[in-house]
Amino acid sequence: MNDVAATALQRIRLHLARSRDFPEGSARHGYEFVAPLDARGHIDLESWKAARAACTVTRFWGTDAPESGHLVHRAGGAQGATWVFDYEEGTSEDDEAGYRFADHAFAPGEYVSLREEDGALHTFVVFSVVPA
């Protein structure tokens, strides 16, 4: 791993935003992942390529057991590629895709959406971004 990727890695925590099922949102439902961010807070593809093994994700969902995986950049999607949380290497059935993750700045208070493996789209608020 190069020094640029190592210094750019950030630990990003997402909490479930307000919704019909969770009118106050939920800190018990969300994700924590590691990704290299550029100066604007966007995921840096080139740095990710150098540090992909370190770009992990943990999904925490209420009382369910946490799931661990990796942040992966896949071909396809609206802009030719999609960032996904991949929990089982070799299969895409369990992947959760970030909705336009390449366009979003990951900064506290910002909102992002993820499509779960069952197709449900949930909105999350960026709770924190700290050096990994």
Score class of each variant (00 low, 15 high):
Asp44Glu: 10
Asp44Cys: 11
Ala35Ile: 08
Ala6Val: 14
Ser128Ala: 02
Ala53Tyr: 07
Val34Pro: 06
Ile12Trp: 15
Arg13Cys: 05
Gly80Leu: 00
Ile12Glu: 14
Ala65Leu: 12
Arg40Trp: 10
Asp21Leu: 00
Arg13Met: 13
Leu37Phe: 04
Thr7Gln: 02
Ala17Trp: 07
Gly80Ala: 06
Cys55Val: 03
Val126His: 10
Leu37Lys: 06
Val72Thr: 10
Gly30Ile: 14
Leu9Gly: 08
Thr7Leu: 02
Val4Glu: 04
Asp95Ala: 04
Arg40Glu: 13
Phe124Tyr: 14
Asp64Met: 07
Glu32Gly: 09
Ser26Asp: 15
Arg40Gly: 13
Phe33Ala: 06
Asp38Glu: 07
Ala107Leu: 05
Phe106Glu: 02
Asp103Cys: 02
Thr7Asp: 02
Glu93Gln: 12
Ala51Asn: 05
His122Trp: 15
Ser92Gln: 09
His70Val: 01
Thr56Asn: 01
Glu46Gln: 09
Ala75Phe: 05
Ala97Met: 08
Arg28Pro: 13
Ser113Tyr: 08
Gly62His: 03
Gly90Tyr: 05
Gly90Gln: 01
Arg18Leu: 06
Gly76Asp: 13
Leu37Tyr: 05
Ser92Tyr: 00
Gly80Thr: 01
Phe124Cys: 03
Ser92Trp: 00
Gly41Leu: 11
Ala17Arg: 09
Leu16Lys: 13
His70Gly: 06
Ala6Phe: 05
His73Lys: 03
Glu88Trp: 12
Ser47Phe: 05
Gly119Ser: 08
Ala17Val: 12
Ser68Arg: 14
Phe124Ala: 14
Leu114Ile: 12
Asn2Tyr: 03
Thr91Met: 02
Val129Leu: 09
Tyr111Gly: 04
Ser113Met: 14
Phe33Glu: 03
Thr63Phe: 07
Arg20Trp: 02
Val130Cys: 10
Ala50Gly: 07
Ala78Trp: 00
Gly90Asp: 05
Phe22Leu: 13
Ala54Asn: 11
Lys49Met: 10
Glu32Arg: 10
Ala102Glu: 00
Gly76Ile: 07
Thr63Gly: 04
His73Leu: 10
Lys49Leu: 13
Gly25Arg: 12
Leu45Ala: 11
His70Leu: 06
Gly109Ala: 02
Arg115Lys: 07
Ile12Ala: 09
Thr58Arg: 14
Gly119Glu: 11
Val126Met: 12
Ala5Ile: 11
